[in-house]
Every structure is written in structure tokens, then in C-alpha cells.
């Protein structure tokens, strides 16, 4: 799996895909979607799809791409190798979403939450397969948020496709298990080969599992914290684990859309309320304050009384 | 402590050795009556007003430091006659007689106002706003309202010219200063320029004088 593009620039997203087997263009196919790295506070989240002709599902099952959660990293690598060897009838594609992209999406003014990001990424991968000529007739995917809403969304987007949204889909449907393998292997590689843009000096890379409830991960977060800049971009700033540490130990930072009256949220935090439209037009002025000539206040210029 | 400031290079010119470098000082703002910050250059040859570009939610990175105060200070030359005018008017109200300048420009709240008298050309321009008498080698001054209004009128005319050259929006429409339109629009009249310029000049003179200037 060649992640060199993402290794070079791990600030955005990166798409990878296998060549499309000819048989997937000629026959009806089923497609599975799964994700890797949803829960951790560190590293990217990866969405993966895997597809094969309906007629070859038995062959896919024979590869024994079981529930990937029970497998070790080495076992996942081995299974991915098997999928690669089955390239005459199995195709895959991945979207790697960097922690920076996740953080900025969740924290920008028009909030783009993780579920929406997940849905859109999944749908974009299905569309990619269709655009590449894969004859997708069935899609299987695990639930992300309310199952019925996700199913409806997918059905509206792909009316010609039979969509099945089911909890634990990776243990029910081999094509989802296969997608899970691809996604997890990609995340494993991305994390292992992560290039920190920041100069972290002597910081040890012993961050544990990367999950928020791992004490080693929390300790590492505390150690790598910069009071002004927060964390390296390896960290998902939008995770409450990260925000709590910033709350306690970073300097207060206020943005234009910070919550009204708040003392100031830390580097990562922003208010969630929608600001009044009026707030964009006028700065509040004390009743006794004399307003200067429009030349000055239109340009944001004011008299200085003190340095 | 540090601030970010844009000023003409001449502010920090040091001709020869001198201990009288540029000085920030608080003076009486002739319009508001409150303290405001001004700058005298080396040897107080020139007066500058200090304004700040100030929007909410800004800070600075300066090299390897962070500065909370996100203002950008701007220093621009200012005619010291505006500052002296306040004291001339005050002296006229209180005494109504000819006095030496160093007895007119006195302020217990702002003792550095005496530095205004060092400004180059101040004395040669005082006649625009005063009547003068010379007794022996000493000059005596008295505020002249009519002369002052004539001088201020010239200031307004100069300001109108500058507004036109600078294509400043003086019309009634509210428009973003970063919006570049083809022109002022057909609804802008000469009166709008004069009204705008009067308003700008009024930022530098007492309210009563501004009202008189408006009538003039």
C-alpha cells in the first residue's frame, strides 16, 4: 500500500485505490464500506471500500477476512496481502482523513460533525467506484449515527443500489470485513510512518494505544502540549480529551465566534452557538462613549489614550 | 512590553548625538478634552498623533513571542496648531489679553504640552489664528476667531481635495472600505465632501469652534 502522498502531506486527506478488476465492470458487484480509527484521539481516520462480483462472494469468504477487530496488526497485513493477490476479482479504495482535517471540520464556524464527514466520505468512495465503472448493485455498511437516517441518505444518493445498513456489518458481511482490513492496514501504516511537522525535540513517541481512555495516551498529550499552540497536528484537537487538557493548561484564546461572555476557550475550543447576525455589523459602544468621525470607525481606527 | 507601530522613518532620525529622542506623551485632545497619546520626534521638531487600528479578537506573533494586545499603532504627522488652539481659546476666555506663548500653553494635567512650542514652524504659522504684538524682543499673542475660521476653512478645502484624490467614500451609502467601486456614485455632491471634511477637521477642534465652522 503506497501512502507516500499522505506521508508527504498529512494535513489534509488522501485517496488511494486499487486498479478495477475487469470482471467488476462486467458483472454485478457488492460493495462493503468500513472505517478505521474513529475512536482514537491520535492519528487519521480511514474510510475504506471493497468490492467484488456477487458471483465471487464465496471466493472472498474463502480468504477468511474475518472481523478485523480480533486480528493483530501482523495478521491484518497478511490478510491485506491476500486481498491484493485476489486482484483479479477484488478491488478497494480508501480515503485517509487526517487528524487536522477532522479537527478543523468539527471546529470551523459552520460545524461539520464527524457523522456527516463519515457519511460524505463513504458516499464519495461509492461514487468513485461507480465512476470507475464498477457495476455496484449492493452496498453494505455499518451504522454511523441513526441507521434509518443513514440508510435513507444512501438510498437517496444511490437509488439504483440496494443498501443495507446494519450494526456489526463487518462481522456479518465478508465484503465489509474486507473493507475493514483495508482501512485498518492503511491506518496502521499512516500512524507508524507519521512525520511530525513540528519539532518535538526529545519527546518520546510512547503514546500508547492512542485511545482517549488510555493513561499513556493522556500522559503523552500532556507532555507534548505547547501552551500557545496546543498539540502537534497528529492530535485531534476536537476530541474532548484534548480540549480538557487545553482547558486546564493552555493559554486562553478567543475567536470571533467564541461563546458570548465566556472567559475564553483554549486554543482548540470554540463556542457552539450561532452568533447573532447583528454582531457582524456593529461593535457595541458604551452609552457615554463619543463616536469618532466615520472615516475612523469605518476603518477600525481609534484614538489611543494608553499603551 | 512591546507594541507594533507604523511610523514615518523620520520619527526616529537622530541628527547627531542627542538625548532628546522620540517621546510618547499624553496631551489634551482638543476635541474630546480627554487625554490622548501623541508622539514628538527627535528634539520635538514635529508632532504626531497616535491612532490604533483595533478590531476585536486579534493578537500578534512577534518573532518568538506572543503579544496579547492586537492593536496596530499608526503615527501620522499632525499640525501642532490644533493643539495650541485649545490653549489660545482658553486664554482668550479667561484673560482676554495678549500674552507670551509660554504663558498660554500651560497645563498642569499635561505638563509636556510645553514641548509643542518647540515644533518647527509653529511660531511662523501662529499668525493664522492669532493677533500678534511685539514689545522689545518678545512676542505676545491673542486668539482671533475670524482668522481661525478662515484658516480652518482652508484646512477643509485641503481635506476635500485629499478626499477626492484618495477616492474616499463620502456619500450617504454605507459601503465597505475594501469594496472598490467604479466611483463615488451619482448621488455624491460637493456638499457631501465639505460636510465630510468638516467632520474630519472637527475631530481636532473644540465642539464650539466646530459649530462655528459649520456655519462659516
Amino acid at each position: 500500500m503506497d501512502l507516500s502522498d499522505f506521508e508527504r502531506d498529512n494535513t489534509g486527506s488522501c485517496r488511494l485505490s486499487s486498479p478495477v478488476p475487469e470482471v467488476c465492470r462486467a458483472e454485478d458487484c457488492c460493495l462493503g464500506i468500513d472505517e478505521a480509527g474513529r475512536g482514537p484521539v491520535l492519528g487519521p481516520m480511514v474510510y475504506g471500500i471493497c468490492f467484488c462480483p456477487l458471483s465471487r462472494l464465496g471466493d472472498l469468504e474463502a480468504l477468511k477476512v474475518a472481523d478485523s477487530k480480533t486480528l493483530s496488526e501482523a495478521e491484518r497485513e497478511r490478510l491485506f496481502g491476500k486481498l491484493e493477490q485476489a486482484r483479479d476479482f477484488v478491488g478497494w479504495a480508501l480515503d485517509i482523513l487526517s487528524p487536522n482535517l477532522i479537527s478543523t471540520s468539527m471546529q470551523r464556524r459552520a460545524k461539520y460533525n464527524l457523522n456527516s464527514l463519515s457519511h460524505d466520505t463513504a458516499m464519495a468512495l461509492v461514487q468513485l467506484a461507480l465512476d470507475q465503472g464498477v457495476r455496484v448493485t449492493q452496498v453494505f455498511v455499518d451504522t454511523v449515527g441513526p441507521a434509518d437516517k443513514y440508510q435513507q441518505k444512501l438510498k437517496e444518493r444511490f437509488p439504483e443500489v440496494e443498501v443495507t445498513v446494519r450494526p456489526k456489518a463487518d462481522s456479518l458481511f465478508p465484503v465489509v470485513s474486507a473493507a475493514s482490513i483495508c482501512a485498518k492496514v492503511a491506518r496502521d501504516h499512516a500512524v507508524k510512518r507519521w512525520k511530525f511537522l513540528e519539532d518535538l525535540k526529545d519527546l518520546k513517541m510512547d503514546y500508547g494505544s492512542g485511545y482517549p481512555n488510555d493513561p499513556k495516551t493522556k500522559e503523552w498529550l500532556s507532555q507534548c502540549l505547547d501552551p500557545v499552540f496546543g498539540f502537534p497536528q497528529f492530535v485531534r484537537f476536537s476530541w474532548s480529551t484534548a480540549q480538557l487538557i487545553l482547558d486546564g493548561r493552555a493559554v486562553p484564546v478567543r475567536w470571533e465566534d467564541s461563546e458570548e461572555g465566556a472567559g475564553g476557550s483554549p486554543a482548540a475550543g470554540r463556542g457552539s452557538g450561532t452568533p447573532s447576525l447583528l454582531s457582524y455589523f456593529a461593535r457595541t459602544q458604551a452609552a457615554t462613549e463619543r463616536q469618532s468621525h466615520r472615516f475612523f470607525h469605518e476603518r477600525g481606527l481609534e484614538t489611543v489614550a494608553d499603551l | 512590553d512591546q507594541w507594533v507601530l507604523v511610523a514615518p522613518e523620520s520619527v526616529t532620525d537622530l541628527p547627531g548625538k542627542t538625548e532628546n529622542g522620540p517621546v510618547f506623551t499624553r496631551l489634551h485632545n482638543p476635541c474630546t478634552g480627554e487625554a490622548a497619546l501623541y508622539l514628538f520626534d527627535t528634539n520635538a521638531q514635529q508632532l504626531f498623533e497616535v491612532k490604533a487600528f483595533h478590531e476585536d479578537y486579534h493578537s500578534w506573533f512577534i518573532d518568538q513571542t506572543v503579544q496579547h494586545d492586537g492593536r496596530l499603532l499608526l503615527v501620522t504627522p499632525m499640525d501642532p496648531l490644533f493643539m495650541v488652539l485649545y490653549y489660545l481659546i482658553k486664554a482668550e476666555k479667561e484673560q482676554g489679553k495678549f500674552q507670551p506663548l509660554d504663558q498660554i500653553v500651560i497645563d498642569a494635567d499635561f505638563p509636556s504640552c510645553s514641548m509643542l512650542l518647540q515644533c518647527a514652524k509653529l511660531k511662523s504659522f501662529l499668525h493664522h489664528v492669532t493677533d500678534e504684538k511685539e514689545i522689545g524682543n518678545k512676542k505676545f499673542y491673542k486668539y482671533n476667531k475670524e482668522k481661525t475660521l478662515k484658516w480652518l476653512n482652508k484646512k477643509v478645502d485641503q481635506t476635500v481635495r485629499a478626499l477626492k484624490i484618495g477616492n474616499v467614500n463620502v456619500g450617504p451609502r454605507v459601503q465597505s472600505t475594501t469594496f472598490i467601486s467604479g466611483g463615488q456614485g451619482s448621488d455624491v455632491k460637493e456638499e457631501d465632501y465639505i460636510r465630510y471634511a468638516h467632520g474630519l477637521i472637527s475631530e481636532y477642534i473644540p465642539k464650539e469652534l466646530s459649530e462655528d465652522l459649520a456655519k462659516y
Partner: peptide, 22 residues
């Protein structure tokens, strides 16, 4: 000039996290 208010005066590891770009 930053688009946020940082309530602190003091050292900041600017060059560790930012590189200038034109």
C-alpha cells in the same frame, strides 16, 4: 497579526509550528 485573541504575553514557539510563506 492573528485572527484570534491570545490572552498571554511572553515566549511562543512560533518557528516550531509556523513557517513563513509568501
Amino acid at each position: 497579526l492573528l485572527p484570534c485573541e491570545i490572552r498571554h504575553n511572553g515566549p511562543a514557539a512560533v518557528s516550531r509550528f509556523f513557517s513563513p510563506a509568501i
